[in-house]
């Protein structure tokens, strides 16, 4: 099987280099990790372990989102541990389904926004309006934080405090 991967890899390198890309092939191990945190909820991650001390962790379920880039392999298991704990906690919420739906909508929105920009010549006013809508959503999230009670204390939020 390795031979076929080698062959496929050299075809990719050749095509990408000829397209003008700077290609670095990093050997390592790709991890797919799944946790069944409740009957309805499965949380899954993917990351690449290599000896170059650059690790990319991505959550693939319940919705795809890049988690972070790490310089230490040890941090990955810690982050996954906390993430799974949080989802176990979230699985008890009556709003879980809605939360996942909204997140998926956010994700779809990014893709449709990208299509809009890449396929059409959009005027400045449209961008301004979209920016305003996003600011409104940010404000709504931060306002909601102020009026809601905190349920997880294992670590501090990564982004919410900055907004």
């Amino acid at each position: 099987m390795n031979r076929y991967i080698e062959s496929e890899s050299s075809q990719h390198v050749m095509k990408l280099v000829q397209m003008g890309g700077d290609v670095k092939v990093v050997s390592g191990k790709l991890f797919y990790v799944e946790f069944q945190v409740s009957e309805q909820l499965e949380v899954a991650y993917v990351y690449h372990l290599n000896k170059h001390n650059k690790f990319f962790l991505e959550r693939t379920k319940p919705y795809p989102i890049p988690v972070r880039e790490f310089d230490s392999a040890d941090a990955i298991c810690d982050i996954i541990k906390i993430d799974v704990e949080q989802f176990k906690n979230a699985a008890n919420s009556h709003h879980l389904e809605k939360f996942i739906d909204i997140n998926s909508e956010f994700h779809n929105m990014i893709l449709t926004f990208e299509d809009l920009f890449l396929y059409y010549n959009v005027d400045h006013a449209t961008f301004e309006r979209i920016q305003q809508d996003i600011d409104d959503i940010h404000k709504r999230i931060n306002d909601a934080k102020e009026s809601a009670s905190r349920v997880y204390f294992g670590k501090e939020p990564d982004y919410l405090e900055d907004k």
């Binding site: 031979r3 080698e6 062959s7 496929e8 050299s10 075809q11 050749m14 095509k15």
Partner: peptide, 14 residues
């Protein structure tokens, strides 16, 4: 021969 094939065939396909 196997190494040669692994080198030449992918390039040929591209």
């Amino acid at each position: 021969n196997v190494t040669t094939i692994l080198l030449v065939v992918p390039v040929t396909l591209v």
